[in-house]
Simulated scan of single mutants.
Amino acid sequence: MRTIVITGGTDGLGRALALHHLSRGDRVIAVGSTPAKGRALLHDAARRHPSAADRAAFHQADLTSAAATRRLAATLRHTHPRIDALVLCAQRYRLLGPRHLTPEGLEHNFALAYLSRFLLSHDLRAALEAAPRPVIMNVATPGVPLGRIHWDDLQLTRGYSGTTATLQSFRANDLLGAAFAATHPRTPVRYITYNPGVVATGMPDHLPQPLRTLTRAAFRLIAAPPDTAIAPMCRLLDDPPAHPFTAYDRTRPLPLTRRAFDPEAALRLHRATRDLLDTLTPQEP
């Protein structure tokens, strides 16, 4: 029985993946911020697949907090010393409005969409390496040439916009995969940065009006349903590529020679992230 950990596992792609793997007989740990959605996932899983009740679990966690993310990783290492796949889907867009800081003083998009993925990728490495064919799938936007890393101001204290912050987190995730492979050259873990395209998820729910209504209308026209969009993701999770790091735009592999995956930039961001984490005040459990 494989063990699959999915952040953002109660909505959209994450939820569809959770139900798929439970139907296959896998053990699934879904991570989310809303207990009601966690209960709904577990109820739906047991209704569809009665045997899934013993194989499905929900962990509530605030992934905007580095301390909470680290506690989650420690709990998962203790309860599941072998993890076959880690799927990173958690995201909540803040495209409009003022700059929002987490209790640790970090810019919200950076903390949730990038830093939590950095921490879980590295902190769960040992549990992943205990599996026969371990894989990390970081669901992001490789192949989209928008945004950049603001090296002199990663927390965007100057000239902030939600769009700028969101796009920076996307580009940071491109570099995260490249840096993971470079900093762990002997690991058996295969790291995939994956762009699922436009998918009908709950993303518009977090947008202000009138953008929420417009985005929902656009999704109805062009977005793929999650149950359809996960098909190529499942194939990669079942049969990970041989290369330590790969990037995909749906079924299309992307050349790693692209600037988005520049090895020097990847290691630079890795070092900057480690330095940032060293400055955070430890949070009480």
Rank of each mutant, 00 (worst) to 15 (best):
L22W: 01
P81Y: 09
L88V: 12
R70M: 08
G9N: 12
R27I: 08
D84C: 11
R55I: 07
A40V: 11
D54F: 09
A53M: 12
D44V: 01
G14P: 02
T7N: 13
H43W: 01
D62G: 10
A30S: 12
A61E: 07
L63S: 04
A36R: 00
H21N: 13
P35G: 06
H78K: 14
L86F: 11
G25L: 10
A30W: 00
L76N: 04
G38N: 01
A74S: 13
H80L: 09
L72N: 12
R48F: 00
R71T: 13
D62E: 15
D54L: 14
V28K: 07
T34F: 00
R48P: 01
R47G: 12
G38V: 00
T69E: 10
S51R: 13
T34R: 14
G12Q: 03
R27C: 04
A52G: 08
H20Y: 15
L17Q: 08
G12D: 02
A18V: 12
D11P: 02
A53W: 07
D84A: 08
D44R: 13
R15P: 07
A66P: 11
L13G: 01
L17E: 02
A56G: 13
A56D: 07
H20N: 06
A52K: 06
A52L: 12
V87S: 04
H20D: 07
D62Q: 11
P81V: 13
R27S: 05
R24D: 08
L13C: 02
L22H: 10
L72R: 11
S65F: 09
L22Q: 10
Q60D: 04
A74K: 14
L88I: 03
A67M: 01
R27N: 13
R15D: 00
G12N: 04
G9F: 08
S33I: 04
A67G: 15
L86Y: 07
P50C: 09
T69S: 13
A30R: 03
R55M: 10
H21P: 02
R55Y: 09
S65H: 04
I83H: 05
P50K: 12
T7I: 11
D44S: 11
L41W: 00
L19C: 10
P81E: 15
G14Y: 00
T79F: 06
S23F: 11
R24H: 11
T69C: 09
A45W: 06
R47F: 06
D62K: 13
R39C: 06
L42F: 01
T64F: 07
A53R: 15
T69G: 12
D62W: 09
H78V: 04
A18K: 00
T79E: 13
L86H: 07
S51D: 15
R82K: 11
A53P: 09
L76Q: 12
